[in-house]
């Protein structure tokens, strides 16, 4: 287990290194990305440009530049944005992390619970009207783009019906830190959570239903039924339990991707200054230090999420445990 952990950590470092190099090189290969021109401002003279290049180390070979940037990112932690002068990259990302984590974790709780309920109920009542109804709703949830659904939610709760009893509690768009005001945090996030989870509830419900129905055809389900343990127990303890492997694998990948900035659309719609929004803005302005910081952060979470999935997988499926 310790070896697996260390191997994972090594793998994580490798992946993050590779991603940072690629992000770095893509930046320099991008036309019009010359940072010195941005830093020096409009209509700067050649001399000024040269000066800026020299000051920021942009006239040095690429490997040296990369090493310097990594040093300022990880060791001295004083890397500043190329665009917003003086804005330190690390604190900015650090401030955005709790927002994204709050959004994604809350939504994850909703979509895991929702997906489980929808999947199990639909799988157990396969072919019935309940099943069909749930699958139609799920499909509707998957089909609605998150930015559209988010805008509709905003329209209803912030504008049209904001003054009615139903939505008068909804605070203005934005984030309230959990440590400052837990109730306010919840109120600010509950609608974004629901909007973000809608897609995944439909997706996970459908996947779980399919997996459950397949599992319920297996021989061991017949054995379990022959034991006389009752259908609920057969369904949950044997059918669902074996179906969870696929469910958890999918969850890990989605969760990692969302925490790594994939919740961008939801963040933009609801005015949450999370990592997704940060990455998006940095890409708009070709702000290399910020891009590097957010991309490395994202790769960290994706690899971490995979690691956690592997551990969960081993807990859920003894066959995976022995395969190590």
């Amino acid at each position: 287990m310790l070896f697996a952990l260390l191997a994972r950590l090594g793998q994580m470092v490798l992946v993050m290194f590779g991603i940072s190099v690629v992000a770095f090189l893509i930046f320099f290969a991008t036309p019009g990305a010359d940072p010195s021109a941005r830093i020096a401002g409009r209509n700067a003279s050649q001399e000024t440009l040269q000066q800026v290049r020299h000051d920021f180390g942009l006239d040095r070979p690429l490997p040296v530049q990369y090493a310097l940037m990594m040093k300022r990112l990880f060791v001295t932690r004083d890397l500043t944005s190329f665009v917003n002068r003086g804005q330190k990259v690390i604190p900015t990302v650090m401030n955005a992390i709790p927002i994204t984590l709050s959004l994604v974790c809350g939504a994850a709780v909703l979509w895991v619970l929702g997906g489980l309920v929808v999947g199990v109920v639909a799988g157990a009542t396969r072919g019935s009207y309940v099943d069909r109804g749930l699958m139609m709703l799920g499909l509707a949830g998957i089909s609605m783009p998150v930015f559209w659904l988010g805008e509709v939610a905003n329209l209803v709760t912030q504008s049209r019906w904001h003054d009615t009893w139903a939505f008068s509690w909804v605070p203005a768009l934005g984030y309230v830190p959990l440590s400052v005001d837990p109730w306010g945090w919840f109120k600010a996030l509950v609608i974004p959570w629901t909007v973000l989870a809608t897609l995944y509830v439909g997706l996970y419900g459908r996947v779980l239903r399919a997996s459950l129905i397949e599992m319920m055809q297996e021989d061991f389900i017949r054995t379990a039924r022959a034991k006389g343990i009752g259908e609920t127990r057969v369904l949950l303890h044997h059918g669902l339990r074996t179906s969870l492997v696929a469910f958890v694998t999918m969850f890990g990948l989605d969760f990692g991707a969302l925490v790594g900035g994939g919740a961008l659309l939801t963040e933009v719609v609801f005015g949450l200054q999370g990592v997704g929004k940060l990455t998006y803005d940095a890409l708009q302005t070709l702000d290399l230090p910020m891009i590097l910081a957010t991309v490395i952060y994202a790769s960290f979470f994706v690899v971490m999420a995979n690691f956690v999935v592997d551990i969960l997988h081993a807990i859920l499926d003894p066959r995976a445990r022995d395969a190590r």
Partner: peptide, 29 residues
């Protein structure tokens, strides 16, 4: 009914299946 049946099978009547490779739930001891 299922409940009455479940009181009998597994206790008074039990079954051994053909293929032992697939007859046990893989995730439980």
């Amino acid at each position: 009914g299922r409940r009455a049946l479940d009181r009998i099978r597994g206790r008074d009547m039990a079954m051994i299946f053909q293929d032992p490779m697939t007859a046990l739930t893989p995730v439980h001891t």
